[in-house]
Amino acid sequence: MNFCGTQNSVKREQDDGMISLINIVFLMLIFFMVAGQIQRSDAVKLDPPLSASETAQRQDRVTLLVGPDRGLWFEHKLIADQELAAELNAALAAAEAPDQLSILVKVDGALAVSRLQEVLREIKRAGFPKVSLATQHSELNS
């Protein structure tokens, strides 16, 4: 007359199936924690140009993003074209070492070069010593 006992064993058998599921979930959790990087996503979805460049991105930098619709985002803030010069100068003035400050320009691969050149000219005028372009690694596209 052990009703609870039989009920328990049925429940335990159901739980046994769950254990393998929990194992998988743990493994996936560890994989995503170790392999993934958590970083702030871009303001607009970009398809960066592919390049064979192996240079890793520096961390101490300001970011200027040019969207596929030609919009400008400076440090995740949408700005108008006329404000760019002022923002760049402000960033240089706020930097501890202005001669070491680097700027990373993120553009869409399909963006017209003339637009990129406009932005780069503005950056050159502001006097940034280091300018780099964000790319995505791929084997050479010939």
Partner: peptide, 21 residues
């Protein structure tokens, strides 16, 4: 698990230096 799946990023960004001091 959901948090890490949704927020982790597997894009490998690189850069090209256009100029340097």
């Amino acid at each position: 698990l959901l948090f890490f799946m949704l927020s982790s990023n597997f894009q490998h960004w690189r850069q090209i230096d256009l100029s340097s001091a």
